[in-house]
Amino acid sequence: MSDALNMHYIVDGSDFTTAGEASTAVKMKLKKLGIAPDIVRKVAIAMYEAEINMVIHAGGGVADVSLESDKITIRLIDHGKGIPDVELAMREGYSTAPDAVRSLGFGAGMGLPNIKKYSDEMYIDTEVGKGTTVTLIINLQ
């Protein structure tokens, strides 16, 4: 595989019920391309949690996925309120999600820790009032 395969998705922030559509599409695509099941699962879970976060906290955004010979890079970009304290946000159990989201099965402060757990590398670039870019790398080897 010499060139990267790129996928681009718009994540609708207005409807929680559609959250996860981009991750599902990526999972199906990677499966079809014959990527190893354990890698596909890591990508799917990490991206799904990040996509859910984007809908809950930032009103949606875009997701770009790039498949190269040695890694998969997922970049999620939003123009939401940003994360004031990334270290605190990374703590298991810490959450600023509203109760309505908790009643839907998310928002218990496991999102970012889960994303980190299933990624080989994770970078968060955030500015309060401007937005957040989360970059995830999953190695293929």
């Binding site: 996860g20 699962r41 799917a44 799904y48 099965g105």
Partner: peptide, 10 residues
Amino acid sequence: NPQTVRTAVM
């Protein structure tokens, strides 16, 4: 909600 199905898929 639909997220139960999506979680199961993932």
